[in-house]
């Protein structure tokens, strides 16, 4: 049961970061690209990654209740930065008025995740720049349709934070198996369903 929930949490986190490269990466590259075209290409993926983030935090809360609070409150200001960036990025992309606001938002989110990575690894703060760099590379690959490189950069974006997570010992931090058993019935069929549906969105919108 413990392994199962680590896999579920890992899948959701990987899903978020792999998808996040599209739009934060695009946001980071905005100063150097044709804005309309870049944003247009990102549209079917917009908001696609945030649903994975919400699901991941939901699972973290219910399955790892004694980890969730400590993890989030332990990096309070880092998450303030991530969330503020998210709000700005999403509002700016919706408005399509100020590309620099979308850029700033994307920068705040990705530096925020970088700082969280540094926090997890207890590494010095310059490690924080790993995440924006990876997102930007992934965004570039996506925008230039280098599909052979695509899985590689997606993986590079997806892995650092889940790997840093794996250093945490979760014994005693997880919910009782009564809660876990109940939730397992829901989590296991839903993840493949969402993958299928999101893939359909992309397939339909490129038709």
């Amino acid at each position: 049961m413990e392994t199962l929930w680590l896999v579920v949490l890992g899948t959701l986190t990987v899903g978020y970061f792999a998808l996040a490269g599209f739009d934060y990466g695009t946001g980071l590259l905005l100063p150097f690209r044709r804005k309309d075209e870049a944003l247009q290409r990102m549209t079917p993926f917009f908001l696609g990654n945030e649903v994975w983030l919400v699901a991941a935090i939901g699972v973290l809360f219910a399955a790892f209740p004694r980890l969730e609070g400590e993890l989030l409150s332990g990096a309070h200001s880092v998450f303030t930065l991530v969330l503020a960036g998210l709000v700005l990025f999403m509002a700016a992309v919706q408005l399509r008025l100020w590309w620099w606001l979308a850029f700033t938002g994307a920068l705040m989110v990705s530096v925020g995740w970088g700082l969280f990575l540094a926090h997890l690894l207890e590494a010095p703060w310059p490690v924080a720049f790993v995440m924006p760099a990876l997102f930007a590379v992934h965004g570039w690959v996506f925008q230039n349709r280098r599909w052979t490189l695509f899985p590689l950069t997606a993986l590079l974006c997806a892995l650092p934070i889940p790997l840093a997570f794996s250093s945490i010992d979760v014994t005693g931090l997880m919910a009782h198996s009564d809660t876990l058993g109940l939730l397992a019935w829901v989590a296991i069929p839903i993840i493949p369903l969402v993958v299928l549906l999101q893939w359909s969105i992309v397939a339909i919108s490129s038709r």
Partner: peptide, 28 residues
């Protein structure tokens, strides 16, 4: 959603097993 963990970590620690179940079902 983040706010529960950021500001109210005591809620998850104490009641996460119960309160977290409907919350996770909502997200999923």
């Amino acid at each position: 959603e983040f706010q529960f963990g950021l500001n109210w970590s005591g809620l998850a620690t104490y009641a996460g097993d119960v309160f977290g179940a409907p919350l996770a079902l909502e997200t999923l």
